[in-house]
């Protein structure tokens, strides 16, 4: 029952943009926390690329490295590898797990971003056309999404990945496989949002004032869709990494690459726990848990922006 009075703009000092963002993140804890975790992982990966020769060390080695694998490591006089050389240990194939993690994080991010952006683009485009123009286009697009929705997409992804010749699977084909059947989510969300927006006053006002379809889409509807687009994008990235992990665990990933999912697969394949190499699957598992956890937190945080109703729950 309280009505908030409008502050006079002159009285309020406008703080810097960055301060505002930080202040907002402190309030929206899940978003802030999720972003912080992602930042940490990114920094880890970048550091790894900088200090170690990941393109060599992350792949099976035929011979012992002639140079220290990273700055922490110092060769003693007999050219033997010292104690600090492999901070995260090595695996059965002689790979430096630190380099594997650094390289793998980068590759995982690549799959996530590639598939995420593509899926969101396709989904948004379809959802938009479907909702904004309606009619036959809408019927077709909606029909296809509705038929595909109940199908466990992962099953089909597994089949596709299994059908492809193992040697030709790369990080990028993996992303394509994942995205092929993953645009339905954004299509549905965007479609329903545009539908509800199309009925709202401001779009009608824009129409009456003689704006063209494209103008309305980009000037009136798009800005209001942004939180949903952001949330859809993060959801797609999450889905892509999730699916690629599932495929990798089935041994369907690009096996030569140190993708994080592949590392887990190989550790399992070599029965690492039975053999006592507990650290081998542990690092990639923790990295994945951090990735998935962070993305979920970000989605929750974005939801808070998109649906203010969820905001005040305490």
């Amino acid at each position: 029952m309280t009505t908030l009075a409008v502050n006079s703009p002159a009285a309020v000092l406008q703080p810097k943009r960055s301060t505002l963002v930080l202040r907002y993140l402190r309030r929206n804890k899940s978003l802030g926390f999720g972003l912080a975790i992602l930042l940490f992982l990114t920094l880890f990966s970048i550091t790894g690329h900088l200090v170690a020769d990941v393109n060599k060390l992350a792949y099976p080695l035929a011979v012992k490295p002639k140079q220290p694998p990273n700055p922490l490591c110092v060769f003693d006089s007999t050219m033997k590898i010292g104690k600090n050389c492999f901070v995260l240990g090595t695996d059965f194939y002689g790979r430096d797990l630190f380099a594997v993690m650094a390289k793998g994080l980068g590759q995982t991010a690549r799959i996530g971003l590639l598939a995420g952006v593509l899926g969101t683009l396709v989904g948004t485009l379809l959802g938009f056309t479907s909702a904004y123009f309606g009619g036959a286009i809408d019927t077709v697009i909606r029909g296809i999404t509705e038929v595909l929705l109940p199908i466990p997409v992962f099953l089909i992804q597994v089949l596709i990945a299994g059908a492809i010749d193992k040697k030709s699977v790369t990080v990028d084909t993996m992303a394509l496989i994942v995205v092929m059947l993953a645009w339905m989510g954004p299509t549905r969300v965007i479609r329903s949002q545009v539908l509800s927006m199309r009925e709202r006053m401001f779009v009608n006002v824009a129409k009456l004032s003689g704006m063209s379809n494209l103008e309305i889409i980009f000037k009136e509807i798009m800005p209001n869709l942004l939180p949903f687009l952001g949330s859809a994008l993060v959801g797609q990235v999450f889905g892509a990494i999730f699916a690629s992990f599932g495929l990798a665990v089935f041994g369907l990933g690009p096996l030569r690459e140190p993708l994080i999912g592949n590392t887990v697969y190989f550790a399992q394949y070599q029965a690492s726990f039975f053999n006592g190499w507990w650290w081998w699957p542990l690092w990639p598992s923790m990295a994945l848990i951090l990735i998935f956890g962070a993305l979920t937190l970000i989605m929750v945080g974005l939801d808070e922006i998109a649906n203010p109703r969820v905001r005040r729950s305490e």
Partner: peptide, 29 residues
């Protein structure tokens, strides 16, 4: 809960194997 929701059961299983079965030896691996 928020963190857990996103973690695939496969990874949780892996961690459970490590902590409960491998380390504590409470249950079979």
């Amino acid at each position: 809960m928020m963190m857990l929701q996103g973690v695939p059961p496969y990874l949780l299983g892996l961690l459970l194997i490590f902590f409960v079965a491998f380390r504590a030896k409470l249950l079979p691996m």
